[in-house]
């Protein structure tokens, strides 16, 4: 439904997105990357708000920058906080519906405001709304035209944990309903809960794409980091190094941090080696078996 082919975007000398290609189908896809990685730029190009310096971007096979009709099938919740501040939520979403040519904008607005759990009769102007409420107004405006492709730029920022959970449930429902839902985030914990398909972008390049767990498995060739707590860290580390089951070591105060590219070998050998040396093991714990470490590995190569 969304395809990005060899896309590069440069602002003067700064390359924001560099030779990125991927395709996204129905369901939720999370775009993960640190601040400034190029997530928003990529989203802006998807929507046609910016043109790629090189490469092509297609949404439903068409270019949103030139094709007027396809813009009606996209729902975008942009990253910036700006809204037409002098309207109330109902009016704002109604305007979004009207600009999309939705029949009966008023009913459509009430319906989506209900979905994002905002009161359609609230007379307050959105300028007076809190960050979390504004996020949900943006979301409602993005949903009002019942878009086929939903692009949500950092939609969970500013929400409290309960709202966050509800919105994640909502995204999942929309994805299960056959829509293409693209959600960007720099918060790992959110992405881990969003769903399994991940695009990781770092320094403008696509660092990984695919199922999060599968990605995790594919990275077995990278060094794993394990923390061992023991009474004689130096002797243990020396013995393990000698047997070539670990690649690197950092010793401090009863704790050894090990890098190994052979987790299984390490697992088999650590206990026998300790017994042999008469060293007591107080704890052996992998320190990077979560999304954060996957992320760090992909982004920072360490």
């Amino acid at each position: 439904m969304v395809s990005v082919t060899n896309v590069t975007k440069a602002f003067g000398d700064v390359v924001a997105v560099s030779d990125v290609s991927f395709t996204v189908g129905p369901g939720i896809t999370a775009l993960l990357g640190p601040n400034g990685a190029g997530k928003s730029t990529l989203f802006r190009m998807l929507c046609g708000l910016a043109s790629p310096t090189r490469g092509t971007v297609r949404v439903l096979g068409r270019d949103a920058r030139t094709d007027t009709d396809v813009r009606g099938m996209i729902g975008l919740a942009p990253q910036q906080d700006a809204l037409f501040d002098r309207l109330d939520a109902r009016q704002f979403v109604e305007i979004a519906a009207t600009t999309h040519g939705v029949p009966d904008p008023s009913a459509a607005a009430a319906r989506v405001l209900d979905i994002v759990e905002l009161d359609p009769t609230d007379p307050k102007s959105v300028g007076a709304y809190s960050k979390g409420m504004r996020q949900r107004v943006k979301l409602a405006a993005a949903l009002v035209n019942d878009p086929t492709v939903l692009i949500l730029d950092e939609p969970l920022t500013g929400l409290d944990p309960v709202q966050r959970r509800r919105m994640i449930e909502l995204f999942n429902r929309l994805g299960d309903g056959g829509k293409c839902v693209l959600v960007s985030s720099h918060v790992l914990d959110e992405v881990a809960r969003l769903g399994s398909r991940v695009l990781v972008i770092a320094q403008g390049r696509l660092a990984a794409a695919g199922d999060y767990h599968a990605l995790r498995d594919q990275m077995d060739d990278r060094p794993h980091r394990i923390r061992v707590v023991t009474d004689e860290p130096r002797r243990l580390a020396a013995a393990l190094l000698q047997r070539e089951v670990i690649d690197g070591v950092h010793v401090a105060d009863g704790t050894v941090e090990l890098n190994t590219s052979d987790v299984d070998g390490f697992g088999r050998q650590i206990a026998p080696v300790a017994r042999e040396l008469g060293v007591r093991l107080r704890g052996v714990r992998p320190i990077d078996d979560d999304l954060e470490s996957v992320f760090r590995y992909l982004v920072e190569r360490r």
Binding site: R227, V229, D253, G254, T255, E257, R282, G283, I287
Partner: peptide, 10 residues
């Protein structure tokens, strides 16, 4: 990584 203090850092 924290490396101050002895024992289980958790």
């Amino acid at each position: 990584m924290t490396s101050t203090g002895a024992g289980d850092s958790t």
